[in-house]
């Protein structure tokens, strides 16, 4: 088993939390996992991204140029990472903020996810990142939803634990969106 993903968006969209949660979940499942954030000057200018690699074997590089999967939460991230996805890979696009993807994406599976609408259905539109996570793991089967729920307790500070049920609901909305084939 091998999976990698670049998750990118504006600062404040929770892309690093999304990556962290995915990493913790892989840890809960007993897999090898690495998480690599951008750091330093790249953090300025309002964009954020991180790379997560999950494998059954020792992981070579935590930095990936051509990912199996990309999750783009805003337009600049689509422009920067969309074309890098490997043929046959997945590109998850936050269709709540990005109208249409220009360019040739015929060799990859592009999945438009209305994250804000899905999160709103779960009770809080700010949980768009969680709706995206739910859609991504349902589609790619990178990790199980149960592992993510377990990971919450480790990834989140105790004072946020009361937020776990609504986060879980947002993840489920994302997953249901994929299951019901509405994309």
């Amino acid at each position: 088993m091998y999976f990698d993903v670049i998750i990118a968006g504006f600062g404040g969209q929770g892309v690093l939390l999304l990556g962290n949660l995915l990493t913790y979940a892989a840890m809960v499942e007993g897999r090898h996992v690495t998480y690599m954030p951008v750091y330093g000057v790249e953090m300025r200018g309002g964009t954020a991204n991180c790379t997560v690699v999950i494998s059954d074997q020792e992981i070579g590089s935590p930095v990936i140029h051509h990912p199996v999967t990309a999750v783009v939460m805003n337009k600049p991230s689509l422009v920067r990472f969309g074309a890098m996805v490997q043929p046959g890979g997945w590109l998850f696009v936050n269709s709540s903020l990005i109208d249409a993807a220009e360019g040739d994406y015929s060799k990859i599976k592009m999945i438009m996810v209305p994250t804000i609408e899905l999160a709103a259905k779960a009770g809080d539109p700010r949980l768009a990142n969680m709706a995206m996570l739910g859609a991504m793991i349902e589609e790619t089967k990178a990790i199980t939803q149960e592992a993510v729920v377990k990971a919450f307790k480790q990834a989140l500070d105790k004072r946020y634990h009361k937020m776990i049920p609504i986060n879980t609901a947002a993840i489920e909305e994302g997953a249901r969106f994929i299951r019901e084939g509405k994309r």
Partner: peptide, 9 residues
Amino acid sequence: ALLGQMKEP
């Protein structure tokens, strides 16, 4: 920098 910034269990 790579070994400093990456996270692993």
